[in-house]
Design a protein around this nucleic acid. Structure first.
Lengths: 230, 230
DNA sequence: CCCCGACCTGAACGCCTGTTTAATCTGGTG
DNA sequence: CACCAGATTAAACAGGCGTTCAGGTCGGGG
């Protein structure tokens, strides 16, 4: 399982000090965020001095880069392992199913996304790209309806996953559950499936009205006039 | 418009120093987050000394409480103003439509949510409650299909709004747009309406398969036994 | 007039931060 | 053995943080 290029572990299976520092940092960054985490706390978690952390990584920012690369690599490996047809989307589903195993990397990514790092942006981009690919494949195969703007559809779908990724505790709480809980996914799956197969509205009045008001707005914006009636 | 109890402005219409400090803090907290913002920066924005900020608010944490209350009050007033049938959900839609006006309070709330403050939790709860109420009303009125678990449906729907609230820049970027842009909402509205009226899949195979695998998982967990055949 | 409270500030305090420095320990190599 | 390179540390550094303190200014009431 262990690839040859990473020398994270010694032959007895113990982790390198550098790897222990990196792992401790990942946990802290995931739980508390980058700015609230101190190098002293990470070093203490790994059982070494703060100076050694700097010796190994150069600076706190470079440590973050190392953590980014490590977690991103974990996701890629994970997606490759469960490479049925989708990828990261499957992992996100598994997030709620087996929270203990996925919590740290998921929380780390959530932090990376809201803190605006390049890794977080890359993750979101991949997520949306895969969703778009899934939609296009479904359209080609006839399992998914024709979609006028597949990219926008992918963004909208991914937005839902993003909400679950970035605010899982809030969603769980609103289902009367506490913390990360597989039950959240189980409760939400039913409505999600209903929405994706039959929609929510009974007819297309809402769609028609909304689209009319939307095109009207577009004309307002296009005309450039200040007030074109109501 | 100005209520009598808040003495935010003098009679000439200029803002109180306290109000200017609070507003400057809201802008900074929204843009940079609570921990990355320094009281010195806020005081400089308001053109006063850091000591005066402490004099008025007691501490940085109490300043945050004052900001929380202020922004939450703004949302309540806004929802009341646009009190058609929904509330905060309407505001979120308007977010992308008129980004310059809503950016600061929306970003502030997004920070409050990911930073785990009581105000952020309260906001999410309200959002989901209103969504659930909307679903129930639609079901009663016949415009919305029967939903087995309306609460879970509300949570799932709100999760999408949450994604747009917490990561608007990432979504815009993936549509080839930059920053907060009304165009994002316009692009996403079409797919959203399609999904909510006709769904995404052409038939119910996915729903059937998923629900079967879900109940199978539930039985595994429920039986408590290790392996009950396949 | 004086005094008072409110508004406001410069300077400092103590603490915590990321980082540096100089030194020590350790294990392998000639 | 001598030697060296890497791992490791205690101690200190400079800077930024939230906060405190002593005092200054200023308009209104006795």
């Amino acid at each position: 399982m262990r690839s040859a290029r990473d020398a994270d572990a010694t032959d007895d299976g113990d982790l390198t000090t550098r790897a222990r520092l990196r792992d401790a940092a990942v946990v802290r960054f995931a739980r508390d965020g980058f700015h609230r985490t101190t190098v002293r706390a990470i070093a203490a978690d790994a059982g070494v001095s703060p100076a050694l952390l700097i010796h190994h990584f150069g600076s706190k920012d470079d440590l973050r880069l190392a953590c980014d690369e490590h977690v991103l690599g974990w996701f890629v490996a994970q997606a490759r392992a469960e490479a049925t047809t989708e990828g990261i989307r499957t992992v996100i589903t598994a997030f709620f199913a087996d929270p203990d195993r996925y919590r740290v990397p998921m929380d780390y990514m959530a932090r990376a996304i809201v803190e605006g790092t390049a890794t977080g942006a890359h993750f979101v981009d991949t997520m949306i790209d895969e969703t778009e690919h899934y939609v296009l494949a479904g359209m080609a195969g006839g399992t998914i309806q024709p979609v006028a703007d597949p990219r926008a559809m992918a963004v909208f779908i991914a937005s839902g996953s993003l909400g679950m990724l970035l605010a899982p505790d809030h969603l769980a709480r609103n289902l009367g559950l506490e913390g990360r809980n597989p039950e959240v996914m189980r409760r939400v799956a039913g409505p999600a499936l209903q929405l994706y197969t039959t929609g929510l509205y009974t007819d297309d009045t809402v769609q028609r009205v909304a689209e009319e008001s939307l095109t009207a707005h577009a004309e307002d914006a296009g005309s450039g006039g200040k007030e074109t009636g109501s």
